[in-house]
Amino acid sequence: MSDDSSRPFASDQAQELAAVLDTLIPPSEDGRMPGAGALGLVRRLEEICEAGADLRPILEGGLTALSALARERGAGSFAGLCEDERPALLEAVGEHAPAFVPTLLFHTYAGYYQHPKVLEGLGLPARAPFPQGYPLEAGDLGPLERVQARGRLWRETGESDA
C-alpha cells in the first residue's frame, strides 16, 4: 500500500477533484471516450503541484469553496451531489475562486488528450509520435504549372540580382 501522506492532496480532496474532472469532461454517451476523472489525472495535477508551479493554492482554494457550496445545498461534498447538480456548482464557484475552473480546464484538457485511452477513443495510435512517425501523402504538385505560367513575380532592382 502506498503512503499518500506526502502527496499534495488528502484522499478526500483527491476524490473531490476527480468528481470535478468528471464534470468538466464526462464520459461520452457512446462510451467511447472516458471521463477525465477516471483517467488518473488527479495524480498528474499533483505532479504539477509538486514541480513548484502556482497550481496548488488555486486548486485548494477552489476545492474549499466548492465544499462550502455543496454543504449549502445539503450535500456533504461536491462528489456527494448528483451529476445533474454539479455543473451549476462549478459555475457558481467562480465568484469565490475565480481562477479555479479556468486553470483546471487548461490542465485537464492538456492532460486528457494525451492519455492512451483517449487517443484510442479518437482512433489514434496510443503512442508517442517518435519513433514510428506517420506516413504522409506527397500531395498534388500539378497545379504549380499554372503558378509558373505567370512568370517572374519578384521585383527587379536594376542590379545583378540573380
Binding site: T23, L24, P26, P87, V101, Y113, Q114, V118, L122
Partner: peptide, 30 residues
C-alpha cells in the same frame, strides 16, 4: 494541431465547452 492543442483552441474560442457538450464540440474541431 494534435488533440491537446485542438482542445485548447476550442477552449479559448468557446467551441469545445466543458460539460455535456464537450465531446460533440471536440468532434467538430478535431
Amino acid at each position: 494541431m494534435g488533440p491537446g492543442s485542438t482542445a485548447l483552441l476550442g477552449l479559448a474560442n468557446g467551441s469545445v465547452p466543458w460539460g455535456a457538450g464537450h465531446h460533440a464540440g471536440f468532434a467538430e474541431l478535431w
